[in-house]
Design a protein around this nucleic acid. Structure first.
Ligand SMILES: [Mn+2]
Ligand SMILES: [Mn+2]
Ligand SMILES: [Zn+2]
Ligand SMILES: [Zn+2]
Lengths: 152, 152
DNA sequence: TTTTTAAATAATATTAATTATCATTTATAG
DNA sequence: CTATAAATGATAATTAATATTATTTAAAAA
């Protein structure tokens, strides 16, 4: 935890941004809920628990800043809100997601999986890939087994 | 064109929806601008040219309906608006996109490219894939060549 | 340490995309 | 033709996100 905070502090300082108490509190929330996919509002409510004086606009600004620095990735699962996802330590690309259309759960895939596809895109389309967004929609393992049970 | 309209008409009737004049005008706009990625507002303005009496809410409702029937796919490229993209004729899955971070252009990839990845997701994660969203962010061919010219 | 300066923040107003409401119109079945 | 439900248009309401501005904070300079 402290190690990751330090790392992020350095990334901010490298671009001459400060790690203010508000920004640190925001980052801590993101670290604590790393598996989740929080909206700005979600983050705001959680940060307020430890830093009640923080304003919503500051949370938005902080998330925007962290996005620019590629510390978090902004993603949209199709409900009306943007969600913010900490990039895995040392990852060059954003990780992938499995969204269950039955129960709404979101699972993460940290493995790259797209190396071959990116090579094809670079070679055949002449497009220099910098990053990607990959989300699969379907039925998660649990909902599949529940479907079997309820039909037997 | 008429062929595709007929097809969509049948898909609507199969779920006992009507192809009203407003819906048809909307579909025609989507067909005419198939390569584009129009927002609801964009569609509204274009439909108004041929059917000036149409209301914005009807366009939203139509796009929502077409999304449910998988005739169009709703996608979000990270600017604040949803965009609507006709699914290619006979395609089981949504196609892919290349978004240039320099010029903002959006290129389409109709080839599947994800068969192997989906097999891995099904086998290793036990997730039954129904659909996907794949967008690459990077530098398009044209912006790459312009970068070479301007630096020489 | 005190002063200076720019960055950052909180509160709030504003914008803009989307959805909800509701009275009216349209299409279809009997 | 009449009855019934679906669809529409106009408009109000919601809400995520951004802009504004006065104030505070923190680093840099004196
Ligand atoms: Mn994630
Ligand atoms: Mn497309
Ligand atoms: Zn599920
Ligand atoms: Zn470009």
């Amino acid at each position: 935890m402290e190690h990751r905070i330090d790392r992020i502090k350095k990334q901010l300082h490298a671009q001459s941004y400060k790690l203010t108490p508000q920004r640190e509190a925001t980052v801590r929330v993101l670290l604590e809920r790393e598996e989740d996919h929080l909206s700005a509002e979600d983050v705001y409510l959680l940060v307020k628990e430890k830093a009640p004086e923080i304003g919503l606009a500051t949370v938005y600004r902080t998330l925007e800043l962290l996005s620019e620095l590629k510390i978090v990735d902004k993603i949209n699962f199709g409900d009306g809100v943007s969600r913010y996802d900490l990039r895995k330590e040392g990852a060059a690309h954003f990780h992938h997601h499995l969204v269950c259309t039955e129960c709404g759960s979101v699972e993460e895939i940290v493995e790259d999986l797209l190396e071959d596809v990116e090579k094809i895109v670079q070679d055949d389309w002449g497009f220099k890939v910098k990053d990607h967004r990959l989300t699969f929609h379907g039925i998660c393992r649990q909902c599949q087994s529940e479907a079997v049970i309820s039909s037997s």
